[in-house]
Design a protein around this nucleic acid. Structure first.
Length: 489
RNA sequence: GUUCCCAUCGUCUAGCCCGGCCUAGGACAUCUCCCUUUCACGGAGAAAACAGGGGUUCGAAUCCCCUUGGGAACGCCA
């Protein structure tokens, strides 16, 4: 028997994010989780992750694993969860069935719910008919007034039934932390299912029981749940329990102003991470969707966000997920990151681009990485910039070829070759600076006319890191090989 | 269809609750200029919004009403 812990709120903030394991973590879900996490941290409270797997068709253990791992990569683990345990478990709804069933029968006993013998097919038909007639598809009340004895008899006889909650016909006012008072007029919802025919509870029922027994003080969730909240209020009331504090946060929308989903391309945390967005940048960006710090400073460490995060500052209106701004933020994080940290984090992306980060020593790699980091927006961009240092990848881009073929180009290239050959030891930044001056007077080329050919010869590109940085990293031998190649074109 | 929610630059937002300090602030993106004997980086600047209409008030982005627009939800999905 499941022990019923919890009870009335004892003053401590306990919040929860309750994903259903039907796919990997969505950025909208990540943002909801983040807001809960921030609030818990800010209040020195507790964050719970509960797995809502009552949809047996779509829920899969591997999805649960994915979601939990996504949360972990974001660095936002909960205090109590299926992974970590805690004093209010189990944290998977499929393991709490007994509680739901017990309470559903209590409601039945109290005449706040009834057995419904309508079949799935009948219900589908009714819903369609109601829709066709332009009426809200509410339950028509076929089984509402079946006498208690008859209901019992039919159940005993083995007839299949679900348990349906009687929706009290009166107005309900939801006191919402971000929206203020929201009144739902009576008749907005019909009698709704609590327990399915197979004994598994439905979301709106399970949530109430879990939130109560897990001692949840604040329910911070997406706005799309508002109509659900009405049903949940009815269940809380029917069970004689106090409401938690609800806070319905605005939705995250795609470019088309519709709720962000797979249709909008990348929509999951996993995809963004795989594209080379840093978890900390994504988290920082997500925090700014529907919330803003008092001092306007947008890029800031998580602990500062925790300090400033208050529910009062949440926005009511929905926010469009702007990838451009995320990308900018990611770039800033890449620029600011400690080079050793960046080095270890970016290596998988370097390998994925087909480049070996270990062809030379770590010091070389860091130098090379540092010279190009300012150009990349995502970790996955690294291949296109770092490859200039890899001789097997070397090739002249079309625009670079043109420059080299020009009059200035030819003159600069051969003059530079001579200088390089005469260079004593490895070329340094200072050597290059001197040499550039020399080349200027030697060839008459200046500005773009001087720098583009040099860059084109050495890197094969017209854009990239400072040559004074790149040349020493490349080394004399490789540089010479390339200049030679350029001249012979 | 019904109910609920929302409405400030293209986008994220500040201001709104407690009207005057708003000539509406910041950030992304865009454009311009500067720096640099090059691209980039960096710096400076520009353009860009109170959805519309009625009230209330000496005064409204801020309060009230209507219209319009957008969104969400109406399941034995969550």
């Amino acid at each position: 028997m499941l022990s019923f812990k919890g009870g009335p709120i004892d003053g401590k903030v306990r919040v929860r994010f309750a994903p259903s394991p039907t796919g990997s973590l969505h950025v909208g879900g990540a943002r909801t989780h983040l807001f809960n996490w921030l609030y818990a941290r800010h209040c020195n409270g507790v964050l719970i992750n509960r797995i809502e797997d009552t949809d047996q068709e779509r829920s899969k253990p591997e999805f649960e694993r994915m979601v939990m791992d996504d949360i972990k990569t974001l660095g936002l683990e909960a205090d109590e969860s299926t992974d970590k345990g805690g004093g209010y478990g189990p944290y998977r709804q499929s393991e709490r069935l007994e509680a739901y069933q017990t309470l559903a029968y209590k409601l039945l006993e109290d005449r706040k719910a009834y057995r419904c013998f309508c079949t799935q097919e009948e219900m589908d038909q009714k819903a369609q008919a109601a829709k066709a007639a332009g009426k809200p598809p509410h339950y028509d009340g076929t089984c509402t007034n079946i006498p208690k004895e008859e209901s019992q008899r039919r159940a005993d006889a083995g007839e299949e039934f679900s348990i349906r909650m009687i929706a009290p016909q009166k107005d309900y006012t939801l006191k919402d932390f971000v929206r203020g008072n929201v009144t739902f007029k009576q008749g907005m919802v019909g009698d709704f299912i609590l327990l399915r025919t197979n004994g598994i509870p439905v979301y709106n029922f399970a949530v109430v029981i879990d939130d109560y027994f897990m001692n949840v003080s604040h329910v911070i969730r997406a706005e799309e749940h508002m109509p659900n909240t009405l049903r949940q209020m009815m269940v809380f009331e029917g069970l004689g329990w106090e409401f938690p504090i609800w806070a319905h946060i605005s939705l995250v929308l795609g470019n088309d102003r519709k709720k962000l989903s797979k249709r909008h391309g990348a929509a999951s945390v996993k995809e963004y991470i795989e594209q080379g967005y840093l978890p900390e940048a994504l988290v920082n960006f997500l925090a700014l969707l529907g919330w803003s710090p008092v001092d306007n400073k947008e890029i800031r460490p998580l602990n500062e966000i925790v300090d400033l995060f208050v529910l009062e500052k949440l926005t009511k209106s929905p926010a469009i997920f702007d990838t451009d701004k995320l990308t900018w933020m990611n770039k800033e994080y890449i620029k600011a990151m400690n080079i050793k940290e960046l080095s270890t984090r970016i290596k998988p992306f370097v390998k994925r681009a087909g480049l070996d980060p270990n062809i030379k020593d770590e010091e070389w790699f860091e130098l090379a990485l540092d010279s190009v980091r300012g150009h990349i927006a995502k970790l996955s961009d690294i291949g296109d910039y770092l490859d200039i240092y890899y001789s097997d990848r070397f090739a002249f881009a079309d625009d670079a070829k043109e420059i080299i073929a020009s009059e200035d180009g030819k003159r600069v290239a051969s003059a530079f070759k001579a200088e390089l050959e005469a260079c004593d030891g490895e070329p340094t930044a200072e050597w290059l600076k001197e040499t550039q001056k020399k080349l200027k007077s030697l060839t008459g080329a200046k500005g773009k006319g001087l720098f583009f050919p040099l860059r084109a010869c050495v890197t094969g590109r017209l854009q990239g890191p400072e040559l004074t940085l790149a040349l020493p990293i490349l080394g004399k031998e490789e540089a010479l090989r390339r200049v030679d190649l350029a001249i012979r074109q």
